[in-house]
Simulated scan of single mutants.
Amino acid sequence: MARPLFIDPGLLSERAVLEAPDDRSDGQGGAVTAWIPVRTVSVHVAPLGAHRFERFDRAQGEIRHRVICRKADDVRRGLRFRLDSRILRIETAHDPDARGRFLLCLCVEDDR
């Protein structure tokens, strides 16, 4: 079993809205994704690094973050956190010490 990970609950001082995708028909055979709020969670956000890349002959970038929150079944890959105007897409979510207390999420914030 993994060693217990010490996380100070006082670090979870930022409030984020957990959002889930809601795909709806666009009336032309496609879909439009709307994001609906699930609930508000307390989080700690720490930047991990930035990455610049080329896509379709255009420079783009992304910023990676580690987000820690209390363990909950509704926090999972494919959802996102909204912090004011910032959007952090959840790429992975796991229990870092298998004790069922916290989730460590690796998230990507698009560089706009």
Rank of each mutant, 00 (worst) to 15 (best):
H94S: 06
V38A: 05
L48Y: 01
G29V: 09
V17E: 00
G100W: 12
L11E: 01
E109N: 04
P96L: 09
A31Y: 04
V75D: 01
G30C: 01
G61H: 05
I63N: 15
V17T: 05
H94F: 10
P4C: 13
C107H: 03
L88H: 10
T92W: 12
P37N: 03
K71I: 03
C69G: 07
H94P: 06
G49V: 10
G10V: 07
V75E: 00
P47L: 02
D111C: 14
Q60N: 15
H51F: 08
V75F: 01
D23I: 04
A2Y: 01
I63G: 15
A31G: 05
S25L: 08
L5C: 12
G49R: 02
E14V: 05
L12D: 01
C105G: 06
D22I: 08
T33R: 15
I87N: 02
G78Y: 02
Q60H: 15
P96V: 11
R89Y: 15
C107A: 04
L104N: 13
L48Q: 04
R99I: 09
D8T: 04
F56Y: 11
G49E: 04
P96C: 07
L48D: 04
A20F: 01
D97I: 03
F6Q: 14
D111P: 15
F102Q: 05
L103E: 07
L79C: 11
L104P: 06
V32K: 06
R76D: 07
E91D: 11
A16S: 02
A98S: 03
R58N: 15
D73F: 00
L106I: 13
R76N: 01
F56W: 07
D57K: 00
G61P: 13
R66D: 05
G78V: 06
W35M: 09
D110E: 11
E91W: 11
R101N: 12
D8H: 00
D8A: 05
R52L: 09
P9K: 12
Q28E: 10
L88K: 07
F53E: 03
V41E: 13
F53P: 06
D74V: 00
V108S: 15
R70H: 10
A93L: 12
L11T: 04
G29E: 04
V108T: 14
A34C: 15
H44C: 13
I90Y: 12
R58V: 13
F56T: 10
H51W: 05
R55A: 14
R39S: 06
F102H: 14
T92P: 12
P4V: 07
A16N: 00
V43P: 08
L103V: 03
D97E: 11
D26L: 05
A16H: 01
R76P: 00
P47I: 01
A72K: 01
D22Y: 08
E14P: 02
P21L: 14
A20E: 13
S85G: 07
Q28Y: 14
H44Q: 03
V67E: 02
S25M: 05
F6D: 14
G27T: 07
R58H: 12
H65W: 15
G27F: 13
T40Q: 08
C69T: 11
A50T: 14
A93Y: 08
H94V: 09
W35P: 07
V67R: 01
R52E: 15
T33P: 11
D97F: 04
F6H: 13
S13T: 02
L79V: 06
T40N: 10
R3T: 13
